[in-house]
Design a protein around this nucleic acid. Structure first.
Lengths: 161, 161
DNA sequence: TATTGTTATACTCTATAACTATA
DNA sequence: TATAGTTATAGAGTATAACAATA
């Protein structure tokens, strides 16, 4: 799904006469449909939030993982994110060119590149995190804190098993 | 996200050593990340389930809406699904070529095409629905019926507001 | 003059295969 | 012989603009 409505204040909205009318269709009750819709809304808001930093969600996710203390290899990232290894390459190329991430050959197996965030990479990921939290807060505005934790727990169980 | 693991029985799985290891990273707790992941898993399973019918999720969604009693116009569908009108055109072209959907000019405004499913279209959507329910049941296997209703309700509130 | 649907086109994202260097 | 990473390329999906028919 791609095109998105924006209201007068410039924020994303999914409302329109057509949306309200068609939201009574049976498909609007299917979890998979709702997941896809919620994700589309979320990813667009997140990309908007990251735009000032020159990042897209894809870069942010990799940068965040590189900045963790898990020192992931490219292969691990490909598996974890269910992306092709070649897509990891091109995304990391961008992050490395900006000096935010380093590829360090593993001493034990020199085929493997272990990823580390640089000092400026850590700074950027911190800013990005703040922007993402704000966007998420906008997307989930109608849910209480308890409900957000419920949602997080349910999603985690279907995402990792 | 694209590449996907399949286990020995051919069903989709998100598990691997790397996945387990990296799932302790902070990003694996962000709702937007989990939404994206759950949606990827779900859409792949759904596309697999629809493959015998020669359908993808996109076609199924439109066919399902055409088969509802809401007689949506193409413009309404574009708004509802947050797709560009031109994408609606090409998807309906496929459904129409197979004799599952008809474009009927509205008597009140002949610019507007109202969509109706044909008899065979209704049959196909019924089969597709059954396939989707099975795929969804696979994706949500770890959740109780109550938890699925919880999830549906939470997603609906962030998807339509 | 504005809107619905259509066509054409460019762009991004994703999938696949071949290659290198290391093991 | 197998694996990690890279490169190149093709395909699918998405975004944008221009157009004809109708309002």
């Amino acid at each position: 799904m791609g095109t998105v409505m924006r209201n007068a204040r410039g924020s994303v909205t999914a409302s329109s006469a057509a949306t309200r009318r068609l939201s009574s269709a049976p498909i609007a009750d299917e979890i998979e449909f709702l997941l896809a819709r919620a994700r589309t809304i979320g990813i667009i808001r997140a990309n908007q939030a990251l735009e000032p930093l020159g990042l897209k969600v894809r870069h942010y996710v990799l940068l965040s993982l590189a900045a963790s203390d898990l020192t992931p290899s490219q292969r691990e990232l490909a598996e974890f994110l269910q992306l092709d290894p070649s897509q990891i390459v091109s995304t990391i190329d961008v992050l490395e060119a900006r000096g935010w991430v380093e590829r360090n050959p593993s001493p034990e197996d020199r085929r493997i590149n272990v990823l580390n965030a640089t000092a400026s990479g850590h700074q950027v990921v911190k800013q990005a995190q703040a922007a993402i939290v704000e966007a998420e807060d906008d997307s989930l505005a109608d849910l209480s804190q308890d409900e957000r934790e419920q949602l997080r727990g349910l999603l985690k169980r279907i995402s990792f098993r």
